[in-house]
Design a protein around this nucleic acid. Structure first.
Length: 618
RNA sequence: GGGGGUGUAGCUCAAUUGGUUAGAGCACCAGCCUGUCACGCUGGGGGUUGCGAGUUCGAGUCUCGUCACUCUCGCCA
């Protein structure tokens, strides 16, 4: 579309240049300028707006490329030819391009120097009264938008988001090819993967009782391509996962810039991705992008300082541990937590001591809403420490806190006391909330970081050792670590790339050794037969000379979402599903004919509740 | 499955402490208007306040249930 969107560079539009007299158009609605004056032209598009002066009628005609004003004089035969000049009707005009007199030039339009005086008119497709305004990007009921997605997509905001998406993907391909990658396709109908999210299943007609699964990612295929000697693979890969929606997670399907590199180290993967991401974010946004190389933060440090493995580095606040200072203090609530093995985390926030009582009360309410028992704080005002808990603390304890937080007059320290894991989670949430409420988060920058050195294993709820990420990752110390280290201390060559607190992707150096694979699974409680049964292709392929390889798969939708400055991923997807994974336009998922079920050897057994409801309807 | 928010005209929203016939802008319909560009002016139609109960003399407003949308926890190798 023609309109610049603030905070984003104007997308580059494709060129349409048809100059011969054509059935529908000689020019687009974004194309005509002063140099076209006196030419006879034909344009087609949608009626964006109508200004009927009783005599002369002005119509703004809109297409993909822009807006052009068409003038209809009362003397024209078609002046009264149609009953309504209804917006969103598609229509074709033939006429002369004339220069507008200086007073009537419209500087807001690229075509504002000229207008077309219509000689002929043809209605191409009449529009009913539209359910919401297309010409105006105002908030609108989400259900309605999804039901009339074809109209929603005509609107400036969505339309330009999808142009941006197309341009970003085109550039991705260029950059990947320039980095020596080749694009390949992998199957959509494949086998169910044993771990990960829930699969979408497709029943087989030929093999009763057997199912295909849609790939959650082309993970195993790309590793197989590495063993097949393709050196650098990429794909704009559709991924299907049956998981519940979030603002940054569309249900059902999404796209990854999937890539894998043979004979590659972690640093090789970082180098390629830094090149691609830095160029994409620099070229498609006006925001400042971190210089290369991006910061690398070990997982444990990230958890320690930010309480999360996807920190928003725009937020300058950090968590600090101050358990020892409170261990023997007079504030029994905190001392008690430390005595029972918990921790006290603090966040030092500068310059907010003069905030209102309501600010601090609201922060406590927020902390409680994310599971905190409370939120302590100390305020330094006019050389005094003010706080409900100050009277329980000695001067020495307060001095040590002041030293830890590097705070002084006008500053505040917040405290969260809980079991380590809970305090970390709450700390992360409080850190974010403080960042927002204190307006510490710059909105004109993209801050990237790599999170590295993820643990290979973690304990599940029942205290059993399990893979903490994917089982294909290479343990950092190889067989030596697997044999000799406490599993929970083993690190993996596993990494995430994070931008402004959004996890763009996980990746890893893969475990390409059958022996290491068997041992790694053994530690997680699976014997060799499980590896053979669950990953037959990879396990077999790795017996025949597998190259060391590594990869990653940044989320395309999330990248575009960040570039488009959209808070919701639906705004960068042409036909998204709603939160309940329904396509309201196409009516998916839907019921199918009995014949289809019979062919697939399927019978439907509904949950009791659904069965009752359907009975009531019938 | 759990928690929060929202639900009033086709759309976006308003409606004081529970109190008259639920209003406005846009859209729609009719009329007027020859230089507007979100044209303007006059008039009109359009509402089971998501749905169902309850409290009350009286409910858009309070309570409970339910449905829808959304954010979120769980889930997401």
């Amino acid at each position: 579309m023609i309109f610049p969107v603030s905070g984003r560079k104007v997308p580059i539009l494709g060129k349409f240049t048809e100059k011969k007299m054509h059935r529908y158009r000689t020019h687009t609605c974004g194309e005509l300028r002063k140099e076209h004056v006196d030419q006879t032209v034909k344009v087609s598009g949608w009626i964006n707006s109508v200004r009927d002066h009783g005599g002369v009628i002005f119509i703004d005609l809109r297409d993909h490329y822009g807006l052009t004003q068409v003038v209809i004089d009362p003397s024209r035969p078609f002046y009264k030819g149609i009953e309504h000049w209804r917006v969103e009707t598609t229509i074709c005009f033939t006429g002369n391009v004339v220069a507008r007199v200086p007073e009537t030039v419209n500087p807001k339009l690229a075509t504002g120097d000229i207008e077309i005086v219509a000689d002929e008119m043809e209605i191409l497709g009449e529009s009913n009264v539209i359910p919401f305004l297309v010409a105006k990007d105002e908030e609108c009921n989400e259900t309605l938008r999804l039901q009339y997605r074809f109209l929603d997509l005509r609107r400036q905001s969505l339309h330009s988001n999808l142009i941006l998406r197309s341009n970003v993907i085109a550039r991705m391909r260029e950059l990947m090819v320039a980095n020596g990658f080749m694009e390949m396709q992998t199957p959509i109908l494949t086998s169910s993967s044993p771990e990960g999210a829930r699969d979408y299943l497709v029943p087989s007609r030929v093999h009763p009782g057997h199912f295909y699964a849609l790939p959650q990612a082309p993970q195993q295929f790309k590793q197989l391509l590495m063993t097949s000697g393709f050196d650098r693979y990429f794909q704009i890969a559709p991924c299907f996962r049956d998981e519940d929606a979030r603002a940054d997670r569309s249900p059902g399907e999404f796209y990854q810039l999937d890539m894998e590199m043979a004979f590659a180290t972690q640093d090789d993967v970082f180098e390629v991705n830094e090149d691609v991401l830095h160029k994409l974010f620099t070229e498609f946004s006006d925001k400042k992008v971190d210089d290369l190389p991006f910061v690398r933060v070990p997982f444990l440090e990230a958890m320690d300082k930010y309480g999360t493995d996807k920190p928003d580095l725009r937020n300058p606040l950090i968590l600090q541990d101050c358990s020892e200072i409170f261990r023997d203090c007079g504030f029994k609530a905190f001392a008690g937590v430390v005595a029972s093995g918990g921790v006290v985390k603090t966040i030092a926030a500068k310059g907010c001591a003069d905030r209102s009582r309501k600010f601090f009360d609201d922060m406590i309410v927020f902390a409680q809403s994310v599971g905190a028992k409370g939120l302590g704080y100390l305020r330094w005002i006019d050389g005094e420490v003010q706080s409900p808990i100050a009277k329980f603390l000695s001067e020495d304890e307060i001095a040590r806190l002041k030293e830890l937080g590097q705070v002084g007059d006008g500053d505040v320290m917040f405290f969260i006391a809980d079991k380590a894991r809970t305090a970390t989670e709450i700390g992360a949430a409080v850190r974010n909330e403080l960042g927002v409420r204190l307006e510490l988060i710059a909105d004109d920058v993209f801050r990237f970081c790599w999170i590295v050195d993820f643990p290979m294993y973690e304990l599940d709820d029942e205290g059993k050792v399990e893979f903490s990420h994917n089982p294909f990752s290479m343990p950092q110390g190889g067989m030596d670590d697997l044999l000799n280290k406490d599993p929970l201390d083993i690190l993996a060559y596993q990494y995430d790339i994070v931008c402004n607190g959004v996890e763009l992707s996980s990746g890893a150096v893969r475990n390409h050794s059958p022996e290491l694979m068997v041992k790694a699974f053994e530690i997680a409680g699976y014997d060799k037969s499980v590896v053979e049964a669950k990953f037959p292709a990879l396990y077999r392929a790795f017996q025949y000379g597998a190259p060391p390889h590594a990869g990653i798969a940044p989320g395309v939708d999330r990248i575009v979402m960040l570039l488009a400055n959209e808070p919701n991923i639906r705004e960068v997807i042409a036909f998204p599903m709603n939160q309940k994974a329904q396509d309201l336009l196409m009516g998916a998922p839907g019921q199918v004919e009995h014949k289809q079920l019979r062919e697939l050897h399927l019978e439907i057994k509904l949950p009791k509740k659904v069965e009752q409801e359907m009975g009531e309807q019938a």
